[in-house]
Design a protein around this nucleic acid. Structure first.
Lengths: 358, 358
DNA sequence: TTGTAAGCGTTATCAC
DNA sequence: GTGATAACGCTTACAA
């Protein structure tokens, strides 16, 4: 009841009030009844004292003593991107339900920044890190620290860290096959500028394989991370110079939006004159005119699995196998359908794969 | 050169290698040259030793000793909302450039959760907190802790914490006046369910004042935080039951999107049959059909000011005055214009819209 | 110009 | 069953 300035209430204060030793307070409050059987009255006294003083152990002191900070780190390219925003939100609540707090950092796809953040967090003493890496340069140093790391959204070759996310190759191939079936052959691709993101290569390759022999990616247009007016105009101009283009594919949500803007600026009607599709779903995708056909990722599941993997690793039981979650082709109206065949649309709503995966 | 397991390199290790005392290491590395003038050779030896061992002081130990964690907290309703996502991103880089790390928590507009997070962070030892409060219940307890707090996006009455953000009353009034000038009179408002967010009341009041005597808010429709299908349908139904409605106003970005969805579901054409406008701009707003007229907030400036306020407070020089940043009416095409008067649109441009002509 | 030693608040080891 | 005591890694009077 006696609300003291909270901050400065220490275990010694509680001990004094309860008439016991600091260590007794610590053990009782931590439920360390392993070897120690306390008198019920002592337990009661300590608990009452702690409550009345509103005692909360200093996590700093505890961290120093135990070596665990109960802090996890999340490193992504850009937390303001809706994909990472949703991911972060889900990860935060997941971790919090296990008493971990979350620290967040953005790399802006810059490898040096990523390296700094990794180093920072490790030295800061986080118990584990979830990262969507911009690339694998400078990672080796972090790997030797021993801090558990889980890769999310983007796999990395050459490290032992497990990856949680969709199979990007497959997801893009699925989209490619769908495009092929609809008769699209001349494709323009919009992708982020991040040179070292391996995911983009997988998506690109998967797309091309899905498109088959007759399909051709005639250009790849890179846009900046926080897409702006300049990107929009440049892309729009490129579109004007490509009158024979069949369809545009955005490799991330931002890219797809930028593509949509540019198509509108260039005065190309979707899907009649030209098709549009993308990887990553987003809130407004179904609101646009036309609603966008996309491959969507199961963000909540990815977050849940990533958290679960990290918790395992932090408790000393690291998983080594990757966790591939299913992506989903969401058919809307930004691609023209083959004449007279409409039920085909439903088939694709839930399709997996029928070919050999690699 | 000798890359040791990083984690366990302590100041004593550096001291031993340099042939000096721990305290010497500490002082030199912290540039505490106030009273201590070291021999250049000592300085050199220490720095070399530190670098060769890749020494980084344990922030935990430092925090315990100094009482400063170099950690700041951000508490918002939902980090996956694009507004808060952008805000968080900007705040994070701002703080980081001053060597502060950022911890993030979401309240889902729940007062109990907010209270818990505040308490958590304070006891966790953060040096300061930036919060977009869900309400002022349970805040008193936090205020007495002495931890500096800056309010962002939502002001709070009865506390000494400074507020950084737009003038919500004014912003909404601006929109209301614009609606009145366009001849709108019968208004439906869509707002989030958060019962205790004072901002919503201000926006509502400002809107009504701007609308003037002849304007009437005929209903207010509350939707859940992570707006879903159910909200969409319920709102759609309400719209169907309001055939005489002039215009719908969304009080947040999500609300406006939901309104757009519902209007589409209900088959009401915007802006011909009914108008739509909102508070908060978002990436896809200009891409929708029609592009949405909104009042936008200067997110970057808000973040920068909030960081600046927090830094001041954390360094012992708290500001007490609020910081009101200018909002901006962005006129697009989701409201019908008065017959035959089009340059009126340009007049409003001078208030600060950046309408994209095409 | 540098070293000594105390102490931040916990928890873990040992003793009784 | 419970209490003393050391230690985690760092900073900072106070000495020298």
């Amino acid at each position: 009841m006696c609300m003291k300035s909270a901050q400065s209430v220490t275990a010694s204060d509680v001990a004094r009030l309860a008439g016991v030793d600091r260590s007794t307070v610590s053990r009782i409050l931590n439920r360390s009844f392993d070897q120690h059987h306390y008198a019920p009255e002592t337990i009661d006294a300590v608990q009452k004292a702690a409550k009345s003083l509103n005692y909360r152990p200093s996590s700093t002191a505890r961290a120093l003593r135990t070596g665990r900070t109960m802090l996890a780190g999340l490193i992504v390219a850009d937390i303001s991107n809706s994909f990472f925003g949703q991911l972060a939100a889900a990860i935060e609540v997941g971790l919090r339900s296990h008493n971990y707090r979350l620290m967040i950092a953005s790399t802006s796809e810059d490898l040096a920044t990523q390296c700094r953040h990794l180093d920072d967090m490790i030295h800061q003493g986080v118990d584990g890190i979830i990262i969507s890496p911009a690339g694998n340069k400078g990672i080796a140093h972090a790997v030797s620290s021993g801090t558990p790391v889980v890769l999310v959204d983007r796999p990395l070759s050459g490290v032992s860290w497990p990856y949680v996310g969709i199979d990007n190759h497959n997801a893009a191939r699925q989209l490619g096959e769908y495009l092929r079936e609809l008769g699209y052959q001349t494709i323009g691709v919009v992708l982020p500028q991040s040179k070292d993101d391996p995911t983009l290569k997988w998506r690109l390759r998967g797309l091309e394989i899905g498109l088959g022999k007759r399909g051709r990616v005639v250009w790849k247009h890179a846009v900046s991370l926080r897409t702006g007016e300049a990107d929009r105009r440049a892309l729009s101009q490129r579109l004007s110079q490509s009158p024979n283009l069949d369809v545009v594919v955005g490799l991330t949500n931002d890219c797809t939006v930028t593509a949509m803007e540019a198509l509108r600026d260039a005065g190309r009607r979707v899907p009649d004159e030209i098709g549009l599709a993308g990887v990553d779903d987003f809130r407004a995708a179904q609101l646009l005119d036309p609603p966008l056909t996309v491959v969507s990722q199961p963000i909540e599941s990815i977050a849940a699995k990533a958290v679960s993997y990290l918790l395992d690793a932090m408790s000393g039981h690291p998983r080594t196998e990757d966790c591939l979650l299913p992506s989903q082709l969401i058919v809307r109206r930004s691609l023209r359908l083959p004449n007279g065949n409409t039920d085909h649309l439903d088939n694709f709503g839930s399709i997996g794969n029928k070919e050999t995966s690699r």
